[in-house]
Amino acid sequence: MAHESVTRLRVLVVDDEKRLTDLLRLELDVEGYDVDVEQDGAGGLIRSRTDPTPDLIILDWNLPDFSGIDICQRIRAGGVTIPILMLTGHDEITDRVKALDAGVDDHLIKPFSIDELMARLRAMHRRAETFSGASGSPENAETLQVSDLTLNTRTRDVSRGDRAIHLSVKEYDLLNFLMRGAGSVLERQEIMRGVWGENFFGDDNLLDVYIRYLRQKVEQPDAPTLIHTVRGVGFILRDETT
């Protein structure tokens, strides 16, 4: 039993719908999670920074004091990288982009099935472990570089030449993925699975939106183009002048 308590993941649920939080607490416990519940954004923000810190956060978009977007931005501003799943009734692509830019890792439209929620949580946790395994320890820390574009996976600093590039959480994840596959054509679904998770069921037009954001920040008139579209397939990051 002691071993079980050590290995159980802790989930923080931030939602003011008591019937939903009661259901989530029950279902998550059955699935082997330890669950903490906060019914407003301020409580969720404090709990996200309090030991024992959660391994995953389920955050509602509409809260009585702050929006889930505001809370997510504040969590990320404090340097917290815990995976966050947003529960929302908003399904427009502009709303999804807003949530992802705030630092949300995935979103789920209400009403949803418990099976899908569990699948999303498992995918987020696996992805978080993959990223931490690639860059979280000194022996695996690395600097990725293509031409004069550099990404430090430990500090999350990105630069091109002498120019620092400031990226949102999801823009950074996308560039990280492209740079790890630099020189190879990456298919659209491969990128979506790698950046948004294998169980992400959103519109893949979201990828085009973020590729456009990256190009606006990474490309510059006096330097070689690095992010290339392979029509009908996906994208490749490479310097074609070398």
Rank of each mutant, 00 (worst) to 15 (best):
M1F: 08
M1W: 02
H3W: 01
E4T: 07
V11L: 12
D15A: 05
D16V: 07
R19A: 13
R19L: 13
T21C: 10
L23G: 06
L23K: 05
R25D: 08
D29P: 01
V30Y: 05
V35L: 13
D36A: 14
D36C: 06
V37G: 13
A42M: 12
I46A: 15
R47K: 12
S48G: 05
T50C: 12
P54L: 02
N62P: 00
P64R: 09
F66D: 13
F66L: 15
I69T: 08
D70G: 07
C72P: 05
C72D: 04
C72F: 04
R74T: 00
R76L: 08
A77W: 02
V80S: 08
I82F: 04
I84F: 03
L85I: 12
T88C: 14
G89S: 13
E92W: 02
T94L: 11
T94G: 08
R96T: 00
V97N: 11
A99P: 02
A99V: 01
L100S: 04
L100T: 01
L100F: 12
L100Y: 06
D106P: 02
D106C: 11
L108M: 14
K110G: 09
D115V: 11
E116I: 07
E116N: 13
R120M: 02
R120V: 04
M124S: 07
R126W: 00
A128Y: 03
F131I: 14
G133W: 00
G133M: 08
A134I: 05
P138N: 03
T143Y: 03
T143L: 15
Q145N: 08
V146S: 08
L149Q: 02
T155C: 08
T155I: 04
T155R: 07
V158P: 05
V158C: 10
D162S: 11
R163D: 10
I165Y: 03
I165L: 15
H166Y: 03
L167K: 09
V169A: 14
E171R: 10
L175Q: 04
A182W: 00
S184M: 13
S184F: 05
V185I: 15
L186C: 08
E187W: 00
I191C: 09
M192G: 02
G194E: 03
F200D: 15
G202M: 09
D203I: 00
L206T: 06
L207W: 00
V209E: 06
V209P: 05
Y210M: 14
I211P: 05
I211H: 01
Y213L: 14
R215Q: 11
K217A: 10
P221N: 10
P221K: 12
D222A: 15
P224W: 02
T225F: 00
I227S: 06
I227D: 01
I227Q: 09
H228F: 03
V230N: 08
G232S: 11
G232Y: 04
G234W: 06
I236S: 06
R238Q: 11
D239A: 07
E240N: 13
E240I: 12
